[in-house]
Amino acid sequence: KYFGTAKARYDFCARDRSELSLKEGDIIKILNKKGQQGWWRGEIYGRVGWFPANYVEEDYS
């Protein structure tokens, strides 16, 4: 189950295995919004990890 999707506004390079690298334009499935302050958990291309919420724009459609 996921909470919708978000589109990456910027590139983000994961610093460890718990984080999710993003490329601008990627569409991420949002799995959890209750991580550390400002971090969401998501899935993209079969990978799961945490990413900074301010790097994405949530899709409300």
Rank of each mutant, 00 (worst) to 15 (best):
L31I: 14
W40N: 05
S21T: 08
V56W: 05
I27H: 11
Y60S: 14
F51N: 05
G42Q: 00
K7M: 14
R47Y: 05
E19G: 03
V56D: 00
K29N: 13
E24A: 15
G46K: 05
G25N: 03
R15S: 07
N32T: 11
L31D: 06
T5D: 08
Q36H: 14
D59N: 15
G4K: 09
E57V: 14
D26W: 02
Q36C: 09
R15E: 04
R17Y: 15
L20M: 03
C13T: 15
I44Q: 05
P52V: 02
R15M: 05
K7W: 06
K29E: 05
A6H: 03
L22P: 00
A8Q: 00
W50I: 03
I28M: 04
E19M: 14
E24G: 09
G35E: 11
F3A: 07
K29T: 12
K33P: 06
G42Y: 04
Y2A: 09
K33A: 03
D26T: 02
Y55L: 15
K34N: 15
F51W: 00
R15T: 10
T5M: 10
Y10A: 14
E58Y: 13
E57L: 10
K34A: 13
S61V: 10
W40I: 07
W40Y: 10
D11S: 09
G49T: 05
R9I: 08
I30Y: 03
L22Y: 03
S61Y: 03
A8R: 01
G38W: 01
G49K: 01
G4S: 12
E43R: 08
A6G: 06
W50D: 05
E24M: 14
R17G: 13
F12H: 13
I30L: 08
S21K: 04
R41F: 15
S18G: 10
V56I: 05
R47P: 01
Y60L: 15
Y2R: 09
R17A: 15
F3L: 14
Q36F: 11
A53R: 11
E43G: 03
R9E: 04
A8K: 00
F12E: 00
F3C: 12
K33Y: 06
D11H: 05
T5N: 11
G38S: 05
S18I: 02
F51D: 00
D16P: 01
D11T: 08
E24Q: 13
D26N: 06
Y60I: 13
R47V: 07
F51V: 03
Y55M: 13
D26Y: 06
W39R: 09
R15D: 06
R15G: 08
W39T: 07
S18M: 08
Y45I: 06
D11V: 04
A53Q: 09
I28L: 06
K1C: 07
I44W: 05
K7I: 09
K29A: 09
R41T: 04
K29C: 06
Y55F: 09
